[in-house]
Computed example of a mutant assay.
Amino acid sequence: MSPETGRRTSLRSQIVLLAGLVILWCLVWGEVTVLNVVTGILLALVISVLFYLPAIDLSGRVNPWYVVVFFVRLIVDIARASISVAWLVIDPRYKPSSAVIAIPLDTRSDLIMMFTAEAISLVPGSIVVDIDRQESVLYVHVINVRTDTDLEAFRNEVFATEKRLVMAIGSADDVWRVKQPNHLTRSNTGGTA
């Protein structure tokens, strides 16, 4: 990568970061006004100067079809899991069982890893308790698992979520990784903690 390309990529990442902070500021206040946008820009500049924020590597690739697929499937997963967890709460025969599972992801992108963790945590019944950035491993607490088959099924759900995200906004390298045959068979490498 040439120095000029690196500067453009860094500038693009900073602009996206600043825009995200301004949007977050407007969401906190609940409305988009000139005053909120101006103060959001000023606050975002102060935050980015005073605090170290790591650069976000953006792939520059967005596939609208896979973005829609990701969000539709996320909504279905949330609805299905909500019903399942609600049933566990009222089922008098339920005996609590849970596990913390190490799930190695294919992606090396912090952004995809973070979005995957957020998507998993939004679905009732599971929450990410730790992330190993260097190894791209998520540690997830999941309820209602009793057998190795339950563990494998949950891992495969996480891998499918990661794949949908990568197909939507991932880099060409990440797309290549999730399309490899070992993508769905690698679940044997992750253990429980």
Rank of each mutant, 00 (worst) to 15 (best):
S2T: 13
E4H: 09
G6C: 06
R12I: 03
L17Y: 06
A19G: 14
I23V: 12
G30E: 01
E31C: 11
V32P: 00
N36C: 08
V37E: 06
L42R: 12
L43F: 11
A44C: 08
V46R: 01
S48Q: 15
Y52Q: 06
L53F: 13
L53Y: 12
I56T: 07
D57M: 02
D57C: 05
S59R: 04
V62E: 12
V68N: 01
V69G: 07
V72M: 01
R73G: 07
L74K: 03
A81L: 04
S82G: 15
V85H: 00
W87Y: 08
L88V: 05
D91M: 06
Y94L: 00
P96E: 02
P96A: 06
S98K: 04
S98C: 03
A99D: 01
I101Y: 12
P104D: 02
L111N: 00
M113S: 06
S121K: 02
S126R: 06
V128H: 05
R133V: 09
S136Y: 07
Y139N: 00
V140Q: 03
V140T: 09
H141M: 03
I143R: 01
N144T: 02
T147Q: 02
T147I: 03
L151V: 04
A153Y: 12
N156E: 14
E157T: 15
A160W: 02
R164A: 08
V166I: 14
M167A: 10
G170D: 04
S171W: 12
D174T: 09
K179G: 12
K179E: 09
Q180E: 06
P181Y: 01
P181S: 02
N182Q: 12
N182R: 14
N182H: 14
L184Y: 12
T185A: 07
R186F: 05
R186T: 04
R186M: 01
